[in-house]
Simulated assay, not measured.
Amino acid sequence: MTGRRRLTIALVAIALFAGALAYGLTAYFAQLARASSPSEAVTTTDAPAADEPRLVFRNTAAGQGYGNAALVALDDPAGARTILPIACDRIDASDAAAICLHTDRGVVTTFGATLYTADWQAVRSWPLAGIPSRARLSPDGELVATTAFVTGHSYATTGFSTQTVVGPVDGDARENLEDFALTVDGSRLDAVDRNLWGVTFAEDGATFYATAASGGRTWLVKGDVAARTLTSIEADAECPSLSPDGSRIAFKRDVSESTVPDWRIAVLDLDSGEVTILPEQRSVDDQVEWLDEETLLYGMPGAEVGDGDVWRIAADGRSEASEYLRHASSPSVVR
């Protein structure tokens, strides 16, 4: 290699590093600016009681506490919210624990997951392979699942890749779902392009559902933690969410006829196999949450960049969507 070529490579590397540094610093200072003024939301220092049903979510109201975990009483979602000093991109909670996926910005941006007790004391943290995407705790609080984008930054991005891991909340052993045996329509699928994401746990914790993808297709799969298996049960299904009684799965389905996804919320009855497409006409890129047996919650982009709102819709498709909570995303119901 000539000296001139070495110099050229060095200059290109310096330019790339400088560009990445500038991007990271710009995002970091933009985040600081958005969170420096008083919050646009009505806040309180009094959190809901430990035994009071509550909604845990990511606060997206501009001002102090932007991007932090927040709580509000479930029977008064429009009331004053408690904003915690915990920054989260994605969050899930139960009456026993909470999981927060976060972006740690700086000169070098990193990504991580932190597990909390029910009273928001940090228990342990570990790194994520990429940009935070999905997080779920099992109903019994024994297992946790996280999904991160390894390449790409959106499910609408061509060629994205994810890493989804599942493991016990009280240990460091985590299983990559790509190592599980995947069966689609009765045949083993070992394609190198397969992707897994969007876990939802059954009541027993050992059973879960997730999205599998390969060759431009997606499937809802049923997983077994102990057997390390994944089996397809429905095609064209992404980001599942199991109902509290375990009888239905809500998911998003791409109904677009072009390369640009257009996701609709759908509900699968596990006994009959019937799928109901709900009357939300906007594209919903979220893993929905069950408010109760009749109602679903999901996040939608807000009017301002970086903001969002939580909407609700009847799970049987008999009513239109309506706004549930402004300046919020990643809702999690705790009863």
Rank of each mutant, 00 (worst) to 15 (best):
R4W: 05
R5K: 14
R5D: 11
R6F: 01
L7W: 06
T8N: 01
L11F: 08
V12N: 04
A15T: 00
A20W: 11
A20Y: 06
A22M: 11
L25V: 12
A27Q: 12
Y28I: 00
Y28P: 03
P38G: 00
A41E: 15
T44F: 07
T45S: 14
E52C: 10
V56Q: 06
R58A: 09
T60D: 08
A61L: 04
A62E: 13
Q64P: 02
G67I: 08
N68G: 12
A69L: 15
A73H: 02
A73P: 02
A78N: 15
I83G: 06
C88M: 13
R90P: 05
D92W: 12
A98N: 07
C100W: 06
H102W: 14
D104C: 08
V108W: 03
F111S: 07
F111D: 04
G112D: 10
Y116V: 14
Y116P: 15
W120F: 15
Q121L: 15
V123M: 14
P132G: 10
R136G: 14
R136P: 08
S138I: 10
L143D: 11
L143N: 13
V144E: 03
A145D: 11
A148G: 13
F149T: 05
T151M: 06
A156V: 04
S161E: 05
S161H: 00
T164I: 03
V166K: 05
P168C: 04
V169M: 02
E175I: 09
E175F: 07
E178Q: 08
E178W: 00
G186Y: 01
G186K: 01
D190I: 05
V192W: 09
V199R: 00
T200Y: 02
A210Q: 01
T211H: 03
A212D: 00
A213G: 12
S214R: 05
G216K: 01
R217G: 05
W219N: 03
K222E: 15
K222P: 05
G223E: 04
D224L: 08
R228N: 13
T229P: 05
T229M: 07
S232Q: 09
E238P: 01
S241M: 01
S243E: 07
S243A: 13
P244F: 02
D245R: 09
G246V: 08
S247Q: 13
I249W: 11
A250E: 08
K252L: 08
D254W: 02
D254L: 03
V255R: 11
V255F: 05
S256G: 04
E257D: 10
S258G: 13
P261V: 01
R264F: 02
I265C: 04
D271R: 12
D271A: 14
G273P: 02
E274Y: 09
V275Y: 03
L278Y: 01
L278G: 02
P279D: 01
Q281E: 12
R282Q: 09
V284R: 08
D285A: 08
D285H: 06
L297P: 06
P301S: 06
A303G: 06
D309F: 06
R312A: 14
R312P: 05
A314I: 04
A314E: 07
A314G: 02
A315C: 10
D316C: 10
E320R: 15
S322R: 15
S329I: 13
V334W: 00
R335Q: 14
